[in-house]
């Protein structure tokens, strides 16, 4: 574990450095407060710090205050080294953001014990951060495929639509559905069905750029959002994405399985500024048309020549299409 020592006095610094080196720490030693702050602010910098109280440039409490003023950074456990023993000084030191203080000259045994306390606190913090990150991931991702879940992909889509409207660019929305997926589940079982969905999710992800996104929209429905997509190339790119599924049989535990997908495709630039629900409704209609045209193909949502179909009819039509 990395540890920072800041002390302007060479003899004490060297003694401390060697003591901690022996205790198994990776020691970074500096001689003033400014350098200490620099080290602590580096990415992957030390998260344990022993700071002398009185130092040139910046004293120990000032370093503590500056470190605590940063937000969204990993916690740094800071111990002030002081030869001062008064209660007022101790309080001042702890109020500046230090976690602990040690009186010089220190006892090696006590120093090691106090640093172990610091390590325990840091471990606790790491676990909390990890738990929070896991929760965050679970709240926004589909458990089976690890793609963005419906809520998360919708949020991103809304943001992307605002942006493309503002920048007068186009976002391409692809809504894809696995053809005859029910047959897979019925004949090969749900486990194979799950395998198929995972494999499709991986292929879709691989077929887009890093700044596009893919989400699981429903059971076997996937939403692909191509940000800043030139309308002239959109159909071609959508075809490529579609073929990434049909080109090569999917590998399953019960052997290779040839499957296809149908897609509805919509270019946001052709629709002006519309609510996301409306756009999704339109792309759903295009998907339905692709299904009606015999599946394994894509259909563009046409802003000018809209289908004469009342919106109330569509959900049933969509439900029947599989």
């Amino acid at each position: 574990m990395k540890i920072l020592i800041a002390d302007d006095e060479a003899l004490s610094r060297r003694l401390l450095e060697k003591t901690l080196d022996r205790a198994g720490y990776e020691v970074v030693a500096v001689e003033d407060g400014k350098q200490a702050l620099e080290q602590l602010c580096k990415p992957n910098g030390p998260r344990l710090a022993l700071l002398d109280w009185i130092m040139p440039e910046m004293d120990g409490p000032a370093v503590c205050r500056a470190v605590r003023a940063r937000s969204e950074q990993p916690y740094v456990y800071m111990v002030l080294l002081t030869s001062k023993g008064s209660k007022e000084e101790t309080v001042l030191g702890l109020e500046s953001g230090a976690d602990d203080y040690l009186t010089k000259p220190f006892n090696a045994e006590e120093l090691r014990a106090r640093l172990r306390v610091g390590e325990r606190i840091l471990l606790l913090e790491d676990r909390l951060v990890e738990a929070r990150e896991n929760m965050r991931f679970r709240a926004t991702h589909d458990q089976l495929t690890s793609l963005l879940n419906r809520g998360a992909v919708m949020d991103l889509l809304v943001r992307e639509l605002h942006r493309s409207h503002r920048e007068q660019k186009s976002t391409a929305i692809l809504l894809g559905d696995v053809d005859h997926f029910k047959r897979v589940n019925d004949t090969l079982g749900h486990l194979i069905g799950d395998e198929v969905l995972v494999e499709i999710a991986n292929r879709l992800l691989k077929s887009v750029r890093s700044y596009d996104f893919v989400g699981r929209y429903g059971g076997e429905e996937f939403l692909v959002v191509l940000s800043n997509c030139n309308p002239a190339y959109a159909p071609g790119r959508a075809e490529e994405i579609r073929k990434s599924i049909s080109n090569l049989p999917l590998q399953t535990a019960k052997g290779p399985l040839a499957l296809t997908m149908s897609f509805g495709v919509l270019l946001s630039s052709e629709w002006g500024q519309r609510p996301v629900e409306e756009l999704l409704h339109e792309v759903d209609i295009a998907l339905y048309e692709a299904k009606a045209a015999g599946r394994d193909c894509l259909r563009m949502a046409q802003a000018t020549a809209k289908l004469e179909m009342s919106p109330a009819m569509v959900p049933q039509a969509v439900r029947r299409r599989r």
Partner: peptide, 24 residues
């Protein structure tokens, strides 16, 4: 004040107890 503080630290780290007390 600053220099005697530095000397105090140096001397006490060295175990020069009496000189450290004098610096203090």
């Amino acid at each position: 004040s600053r220099l005697s503080h530095t000397l105090k630290g140096m001397l006490s780290s060295l175990g020069a107890t009496r000189a450290a007390a004098a610096a203090s």
